[in-house]
Design a protein around this nucleic acid. Structure first.
Lengths: 134, 134
DNA sequence: ATCGGATTGAGAACGGTTATCATATACTTT
DNA sequence: AAAGTATATGATAACCGTTCTCAATCCGAT
């Protein structure tokens, strides 16, 4: 993920955009709120405004570099868009997020949509609960 | 669904609470935003404040009478809690909502959760797209 | 290096929801 | 049936996450 990806997306290569990409790539966690990213930038010594963080994340999403999810709790979370869709398991206790993918579920969704004359364009499956080791 | 249900839930039987229950039971659609409910109340000649609508819906949710869902679009939607869980198919074009239930998906979710040492307490599956006849 | 359009930062504005608080209402006790 | 007491209500302010506004700044083609 580098400057070329930004250019391909029709985005100028600016310092905020590069730094935000960097944060997303190097962070311990995969899922971040906009505020998280903002704070990580501050911690890294970058004075980038929260509005810019929101703007850039939205642009990245439009460019397919990032995905946005709405877990419970009000704040949207963002993750780098690797290739391929996946679903999420979220701890209501710690906020920990684990990704998973199940072809059987995906298949059933397609069948159910079809049965209802529904052209599915996206879907979101989130399991809430807690991990046994936390 | 009557006054006894309210009393059982530890809620006084008040006019706003009765009217809101009535609206939810008799409306054409199953899924309503708080604002929807508020407007339906006005249309029915009831002068009930929006704050009260939010409060009552939240109390109903806590009492298990109502379920709250977060579809895309920012506003929460509420539905009477019939017995049994179900998932949703939402038209991104018209907002139309169709409910479905698939035991295979439910089963897979349980298995996946278990494989990850995850105690699942709830889950939400939403398909977005559009119905072919709209 | 210069120019012009895109981007940024600060803060105001926004939309949905919740909190505040004085008044009104249900239920209990007489 | 009336009074007492705690709870519920309504209007509006506050809140929180996010988006908008706009002057100042930056990117990159020339």
């Amino acid at each position: 993920m580098d400057n070329q990806d930004l250019r391909k997306a029709g985005l100028k290569v600016t310092l905020p955009r590069m730094k935000i990409l960097e944060i997303l790539e190097n962070a311990e966690e995969n899922h971040h709120t906009a505020e998280d990213v903002y704070k990580l930038l501050l911690k890294a010594g970058e004075e980038i405004g929260l509005a810019t963080v929101y703007r850039v994340l939205t642009q990245f999403e439009a460019a397919g570099l990032v995905r946005r999810h709405h877990f419970e709790g009000g704040q949207a979370v963002f993750e780098l868009a690797g290739d391929g869709h996946h679903d999420h398991m979220v701890s209501v206790k710690t906020g920990k997020v684990v990704e998973f993918y199940d072809e059987i579920i995906e298949e059933r969704q397609r069948i159910i949509a079809e049965e209802h004359g529904f052209k599915m364009t996206s879907h979101t499956l989130i399991l809430y609960g807690e991990f046994e080791d936390e």
